[in-house]
C-alpha cells in the first residue's frame, strides 16, 4: 500500500511539476489572474462604490455576498454535523478514559489569574477585529475565531463546566442561528426594498448613513457581525463536543 501510494504521489507530483512552466512567473503583474478586469475592478473601484478601504472585506461581504453567506452556513452545518455525530445525552458507550488524568484539584493560581487577565483582552481584541474589519485586516471570521478561542482558553485552563456556564449549548445554537439570520436578514430586507437579495445599497433609509454608498459600508459591518456570531458559537461548540466526547461534562 505504501509503495502504491508513493508511486501515485510521484506520478501526480510529476504531472503537476511538468505543468509548472506554463504558469505565470512569481509576481507577474500581467498574469491572467492579475490582469483580468474583474480583479482590477475590485482594486480600483471598491473605494468608490462601497467606501471601504479593505478590498478583501468588500469583496467578501458585498461583491461575493452569496458565497460568504453560504460559507457561514457551511460552518453552521459542520457544527450541527459534529453535534449529530458525537452528542450523547445520559450514559452511553463511554470512550476509554486516558490512563493518566490531570489532577482534579483546583486549578493553579497562576493559571486562573492569567486567564482572568487575558480573556477580557482577547475578547476586546476580537471585537476590535470584527468592528474594524472593513478598515484594517480582520472581519467576522477572524474576529469570531478569536472570540471563540477566548472561551476555549477558559475551558482548557479551568474546566469545561466553567466555560459551559458562560456559553451553554442552547445559547451556542441560538447564537449560531442568530448569526445566519442576521446575514440573511440583510438580504431579505434588501428584497423588501425592491432590490436584489443582498444588494445593500438600497438599505440607506434604515442606516445612519447619508447615501447608498455608505449604506453598503455599514451593511458590511452588520453582515460581519452576523458571521462573527456564528463562527464564535460553532468554534466553541466544536471544541466542547470534541474535548468531552459528546457529553459536554468533562473536558480535557
Amino acid at each position: 500500500m505504501k509503495i502504491l501510494g508513493l508511486i501515485a504521489v510521484i506520478l501526480t507530483g510529476g504531472l503537476l511539476l511538468s505543468a509548472v512552466h506554463d504558469f505565470p512567473d512569481w509576481g507577474d503583474t500581467t498574469s491572467p489572474a492579475n490582469s483580468y478586469r474583474l480583479s482590477q475592478y475590485y482594486i480600483t473601484e471598491t473605494i468608490h462604490v462601497t467606501a471601504v478601504p479593505n478590498m478583501v472585506t468588500a469583496v467578501l461581504a458585498d461583491f461575493r455576498g452569496y458565497d460568504t453567506m453560504f460559507e457561514t452556513v457551511v460552518i453552521f452545518t459542520a457544527g450541527i454535523a459534529i453535534i449529530g455525530v458525537l452528542r450523547r445525552y445520559g450514559p452511553g458507550p463511554k470512550l476509554a478514559a486516558p490512563k493518566e488524568t490531570i489532577s482534579k484539584e483546583k486549578p493553579d493560581l497562576i493559571i486562573t489569574t492569567t486567564c482572568r487577565l487575558l480573556i477580557p483582552i482577547i475578547q476586546i481584541f476580537a471585537l476590535y477585529v470584527i468592528a474594524h474589519g472593513h478598515h484594517s485586516p480582520g472581519g467576522g471570521f477572524q474576529g469570531g475565531v478569536i472570540f471563540g478561542a477566548s472561551f476555549i482558553l477558559l475551558a482548557v485552563a479551568k474546566d469545561l463546566q466553567t466555560a459551559q456556564k458562560w456559553v451553554p449549548e442552547k445559547r451556542v445554537l441560538k447564537l449560531a442561528v442568530i448569526g445566519i439570520l442576521i446575514y440573511a436578514g440583510f438580504g431579505l430586507v434588501a428584497m423588501l426594498f425592491g432590490s436584489n437579495f443582498l444588494d445593500y445599497s438600497v438599505l440607506h433609509p434604515l442606516m445612519p448613513a447619508t447615501d447608498s454608498i455608505m449604506a453598503r459600508s455599514h451593511s458590511m459591518l452588520g453582515v460581519e457581525i452576523g458571521v462573527a456570531f456564528t463562527v464564535t458559537a460553532i468554534m466553541f461548540s466544536i471544541y466542547s463536543n470534541l474535548a468531552s466526547g459528546g457529553d459536554l461534562k468533562e473536558g480535557l
Binding site: A33, L38, S39, I43, T44, T46, I47, V59, I213
Partner: peptide, 19 residues
C-alpha cells in the same frame, strides 16, 4: 457619487484581492 472622487488607484499597487 463617490466619496473620494479624486482618488485614483493603480491596480498594480495592490495585490489581487480575489484569491
Amino acid at each position: 457619487g463617490s466619496h473620494y472622487p479624486d482618488l485614483v488607484i493603480k491596480p498594480d499597487d495592490f495585490s489581487n484581492p480575489l484569491p
